[in-house]
Write a protein that binds this DNA or RNA. Structure first.
Lengths: 206, 206
DNA sequence: ATATCGTCAAACCGACCGGTACCATCTCTG
DNA sequence: CAGAGATGGTACCGGTCGGTTTGACGATAT
């Protein structure tokens, strides 16, 4: 959820501004509750420019969620490799999430929220963009598993059931995110519980 | 997610049919993707009847989600008290969820999904119904914590940190639900991971 | 038989939806 | 300077949204 450091803020590039405005509005209010007119206005762009850069609203949604997934994972990887390898590095992920959850505009995992918003379309394979969104969601979770599996492999001794343990940690992360989104006032408590559970599971690995 | 046994199926009561139709459509496609016309048609009722029974669409949504929360918790309590008290009864919750996740129309937790669908409205306290929805979501999670705390108290010896442990189990449950909703093909695996994590946390309680 | 109640279909309302056409403007490149 | 391309403003398209109105129909109870 952090603003990526390396990206240019407003180089007057229309597509960039539209993507940023859409990401913010979609995250705050949901894909279905935000119209293209409002996105264009918030981006300081015209609707024509929006449709010159994106085939459709669904296409814009797909682009936004893909970028969001990239940013989340880039942020997690960048933020965790400071910590010493091993258990500390895994628990650092939870500390990073704690920062995010405490931010004012926190509304849960943008990727999974978008999956919920577009749940109807992404099933029966109607639109290309809808399927693209579903693919991004799948990939988002898989990248979580990849990251967790890598970090688990750094343990000494490495766990024999790294895949299974990684999935448990993923469930803890997404569970804490979902509960925290529904109860922002208890976000810190839910994340602390998840972090402690992660530590206990790692310590008791087989 | 089961059909409640004790309720009359179709006693020609209009309000009942509207609630059932709305619940099904909302769950399958999301609150924002279903219009009142479609709900009335699916219920075999007229739009006038819908608006005689509910003040607004938001009011209907609030009624649907409240009923859903009741049904879920009634189902979990009824299904778990068959199992012997102790660890088995807690793990029985995960087995019940496993059945649910395997059903064809599974789309995640209806209550949390609705919270995501209505995330914009339920914040700034605009509509009464929107706040009612937020309250139902809060209560839904609290009932989870109450149930888990009760079941944990039955352990021998009871855990000293039952509240904290209950929150960990809640995170596992909702995490597994969220991940399973995004990846129905891996729903069973995610839930198995959550169940094993729950067992480990309970076994290692302080 | 009359009155009441809930129901129905259909037309209708203003607002907004996603998406497009048209044209004036601006800014880069040559 | 000239031309090309991207941009923005505005009006517009058909369709759907949540919600209301009207008037008739069929019960049920007095």
């Amino acid at each position: 959820m952090p603003v990526a450091a390396g990206e240019t803020l407003d180089p007057r590039r229309t597509r960039r501004r539209i993507l940023d405005a859409a990401a913010e509005l979609f995250y705050a209010r949901g894909v279905n509750a935000v119209g293209v007119n409002e996105i264009a206005a918030a981006a300081g762009a015209s609707k024509v420019s929006l449709y010159r850069n994106f085939e459709s609203k669904d296409d814009l949604v797909a682009a936004v969620v893909a970028e969001r997934s990239d940013r989340v994972h880039g942020w997690l990887r960048a933020g965790s490799d400071d910590a010493p390898a091993g258990t500390a590095r895994i628990l650092k992920l939870f500390d990073l999430l704690a920062e995010w959850f405490a931010e004012p505009g926190f509304r849960g995992c943008a990727v999974l929220n978008t999956a919920v918003d577009t749940r109807a379309a992404s099933r029966s394979g109607e639109r290309d963009a809808a399927r693209e969104i579903a693919t991004t969601v799948h990939r988002h979770l898989e990248r979580y598993l990849e990251l967790l599996t890598e970090l688990l492999a750094e343990l000494e001794p490495p766990p024999t059931d790294a895949d299974f343990l990684a999935r448990q940690l993923l469930v803890l992360i997404e569970g804490a995110t979902a509960v925290a989104a529904a109860r922002p006032d208890e976000a810190t408590r839910s994340l602390a519980a998840a972090r402690a559970a992660a530590a206990a599971l790692i310590a008791g690995r087989s």
